[in-house]
Simulated scan of single mutants.
Amino acid sequence: MNKLVKGNLVRGLPSKLFKNDQTCVACQKGKQHRASCKSKTVSSISQPLHMLHMDLFGPTFVKSLMKKMYCLVVTDDYSRFSWVFFLATKDETSGILKSFITGVENLIDQRVKVIRCDNGTEFKNKEMNQFCERKGIKREFSVARTPQQNGVAERKNRTLIEAARTMLADSKLPTTFWAEAVNTACYVQNRVLVTKPHNKTPYELFLGRKPALGFMRPFGCPVTILNTIDHLGKFDGKADEGFFVGYSINSKAFRVFNSRTRIVEENLHVQFSENTPNIAGSGPNWLFDIDALTKSMNYKPVVAGNQSNGNAGTKACDDAGKARMETVPGKDYILLPLWTADPPFSQSSKSSPDAGFKPSGDDEKKVTEEPGKEGGDYCSREGR
């Protein structure tokens, strides 16, 4: 309005200064939006474990190999070093956090002072309240339905999920390996990402030494695993085939999926075939039991009523016909002759009513030679 009056762009407006005091309720109902949550340009955290960001994502549509459906992601504010934990239910969150905080404080001789998370019941319950009061940990909660206030944890979740999705697509492994992919993505990103303010990796900022990367291999590449468990004969194969799915956290070993035993094991005696391309569905019976996967996905088969394939429809009809024939109850048949123009009964039968019916020569021949011919000669009735 002020521009219109000042520039004399319209006629009929009074020559005065219009002021907007933001008291129009109608305008707020039509134009109000969410408040902005600006990130800090300079971090006020100067040491590891001073503040931990944490969030839980899930449930996933497909269970992992260990029947997990949730993932807890914890990120250190100073170093951006991250940890991931996999859960079957949300009730396990409190116990995992208590063990993790106690162990990580003992690892680097620092104390956790602040925890920032959302208002989920997995973080806001009686068990966590008592633990934080005993340890003297301050908790900061984001406002309900405002995930941007917990932006560090939310961004870390997105980064890990996108990396895991890319790894699964490249390796052509099924979605049941999502937990192994997320764990490997977190392990690698802790050693390769660069934190801007310090220009160092999270691993170096948190543990004080530079990480080594010479042992890393492509996720999902085919491997041969030396069998050191079973008692082998002199001419039995010494190695099993499998796929590389990650790194061990507690030892210097590789995590590999054994296609023969169908379990994930940690083994150091592994030979990698990095130049061998992966083919989806390769190997005997692929990598998992399809019945177990179907149950984990709560999938129920649906029988289609119409078949686009003519042969398939014919086969289905034949099978249905066979099933009906097996379930039809027993039937009694009465054979009747084909009526002709000649009198059906002879004179002898008329004279003696008890003599019964005797078919003629042609009719008797039809009965003995063609009992199953369909021509209207015989008819049947059920239940008689």
Rank of each mutant, 00 (worst) to 15 (best):
53 H>P: 03
353 P>C: 05
345 F>K: 04
291 D>M: 10
144 A>L: 13
144 A>V: 12
225 I>A: 01
197 P>Y: 00
286 W>V: 13
257 F>A: 13
138 K>N: 13
127 E>R: 11
358 K>A: 04
126 K>P: 05
58 G>Q: 06
312 A>E: 14
303 V>D: 05
259 S>E: 15
194 V>P: 00
86 F>M: 10
230 D>E: 09
17 L>S: 08
277 P>K: 07
140 E>I: 14
284 P>A: 10
68 K>Y: 04
325 M>K: 15
376 G>N: 04
358 K>G: 06
92 E>I: 04
171 S>V: 01
3 K>M: 05
178 W>Y: 01
269 H>G: 00
196 K>P: 01
268 L>H: 06
328 V>F: 12
88 A>M: 08
226 L>W: 01
302 V>P: 00
264 V>E: 03
259 S>N: 15
158 R>E: 11
275 N>I: 03
281 G>Q: 08
255 R>P: 04
200 K>A: 11
323 A>S: 15
145 R>E: 12
61 F>C: 08
193 L>H: 09
166 T>K: 14
216 M>H: 10
242 G>T: 00
4 L>E: 02
248 S>E: 04
30 G>C: 08
155 R>M: 05
330 G>M: 13
258 N>T: 09
51 M>L: 15
50 H>L: 13
254 F>K: 05
105 E>C: 11
168 L>H: 01
64 S>N: 06
42 V>F: 05
44 S>C: 12
351 S>I: 09
178 W>E: 02
363 D>N: 06
275 N>H: 09
185 A>D: 02
102 T>F: 07
141 F>L: 14
358 K>H: 10
170 D>I: 10
9 L>D: 01
285 N>W: 03
103 G>P: 00
212 A>N: 12
314 T>H: 15
234 K>T: 11
380 S>L: 03
311 N>C: 11
101 I>G: 03
100 F>I: 01
114 V>S: 05
379 C>R: 08
39 S>R: 15
291 D>K: 13
361 G>A: 12
84 V>F: 10
228 T>E: 10
372 G>Q: 02
130 Q>W: 02
332 D>M: 12
212 A>D: 11
231 H>Q: 13
258 N>F: 11
145 R>T: 08
287 L>K: 09
102 T>H: 07
218 P>G: 05
23 T>N: 14
160 L>G: 05
171 S>C: 08
358 K>Y: 07
64 S>P: 09
68 K>V: 01
318 D>Q: 12
60 T>D: 01
276 T>I: 07
130 Q>T: 10
118 D>W: 07
355 A>M: 11
257 F>I: 09
144 A>F: 09
282 S>R: 12
173 L>F: 06
162 E>Q: 12
223 V>K: 03
344 P>C: 09
37 C>L: 13
295 K>L: 12
208 G>H: 06
158 R>M: 10
348 S>P: 00
251 S>W: 00
327 T>F: 09
9 L>M: 10
210 K>A: 15
159 T>R: 08
22 Q>I: 06
240 D>N: 13
219 F>L: 05
377 D>M: 07
233 G>F: 06
282 S>L: 10
298 N>M: 01
86 F>S: 09
110 Q>G: 02
58 G>H: 04
308 S>N: 14
51 M>N: 08
99 S>N: 12
